[in-house]
Design a binder for these strands. Structure first.
Length: 305
DNA sequence: GCATGTCAAGTTGTG
DNA sequence: CACAACTTGACATGC
């Protein structure tokens, strides 16, 4: 059945994630930096567990973990490993607790590195930093039992095919921990499902189908076709399909439809999704409130039909 | 206390 | 050519 997922944050639950900046860290000697980072990482680990408990209580089926769970971990100057932190062992134990809890509660976990991870870039330093970030997220994914690390195709640089070829070359050299979890998502400006599907099929990379991006950035595929073909890439990888939904702030008329609305208009859910076996991340500003409301709305839709 | 400007990273499209 | 949009809040600073 359709299983809905929450992205990163809550509106009304007492779950908070802390962070810090390189600028602030730079004012401290290294030992105090590590102390501060240790407190933040421990706090975030404990709050991840609180997040999973809330997710289970609300009947939500999946949770996307925010990228900076351990802030600045791969930064060239401020970077660190858990072993460097005074409470590193305790932090590892909280991750293990999260993995066990999510496993028992059957909560699917994923990561979504942000726009700075670009494997198609012609700049070697950008690619190197991206790989380092993926290594970090893969390490976390192993620790908490997440099966998806989802990224975008990146830039086009005037030559989509060339960009994807660079992507493929980099992909071949990635570690198993990354490759067994890496997925691609169609975006709202550059890569459509039609661009990515042949590539994903060839390299056996699952395609996360974002129907809102598809509506903003069209190709010759219908929503039904894109859903089906994307589904096949997941089947080939032996995983349950993953999709994204969001509704445009201010509707489809007028200005840019891209910003996300507070809630999802149930009418934006493709009909062919309703009875489909898959996970759908809800990208909405009202966070868990939007997921809960959408679950109710979908149930009503089904009851009516 | 509270308001405000800032925050690692890339790329594209707009003004 | 510079800057905002992606997403968005938490933090540090200064009143």
């Amino acid at each position: 059945m359709l299983q809905l997922g929450l992205c990163c944050l809550f509106k009304n639950e007492a779950v908070f994630f802390r962070t810090t900046t390189v600028k602030t860290l730079a004012t401290l000697p290294r030992d105090l930096q590590l102390l501060k980072l240790s407190e933040i990482c421990w706090h975030n680990g404990l709050n991840l567990l609180l997040a999973l408990e809330a997710v289970e209580r609300l009947g939500i089926g999946a949770f996307r973990i925010m990228s900076p769970l351990f802030p600045r971990m791969t930064h060239p100057e401020a970077g660190y490993t858990l072993d460097d932190l005074p409470d590193g062992e305790a932090i590892s134990r909280t991750l293990e607790a999260c993995r066990l809890f999510a496993g028992r509660a059957k909560i699917r976990l994923s990561f979504h590195p942000d726009q700075f991870v670009v494997l198609s870039s012609p700049h070697p330093s950008v690619v190197a930093n991206s790989i380092q970030e993926l290594e970090y997220q893969a390490e976390l994914a192993v620790a908490v039992g997440a099966d998806v690390i989802n990224i975008h195709g990146g830039g086009v640089y005037g030559d989509k095919r060339g960009a994807l070829q660079r992507f493929a070359a980099v992909y071949g050299g990635l570690s198993d921990a990354i490759r067994s979890r890496l997925t691609l998502e169609n975006d709202d400006v550059s890569y459509t499902p039609a661009d990515l599907l042949p590539f994903c099929e060839q390299l056996a990379i699952p395609l996360v189908y974002d129907v809102h991006h598809h509506r903003c950035n069209r190709d010759n595929l219908t929503i039904e076709e894109a859903t089906e073909r994307a589904g096949a890439t997941w089947k080939a990888a032996g995983k349950r399909q993953y999709c994204h939904i969001s509704s445009p702030k201010g509707g489809w008329e007028g200005g840019t439809p891209k910003p996300h609305a507070d809630y999802i208009d149930a009418g934006d859910i493709p009909e062919c999704w309703l009875e489909r076996e898959m996970t759908v991340d809800v990208e909405a500003k009202a966070k868990e409130l939007a997921v809960v409301r959408l679950m109710t709305d979908i149930q009503e839709l089904k009851n009516r039909s």
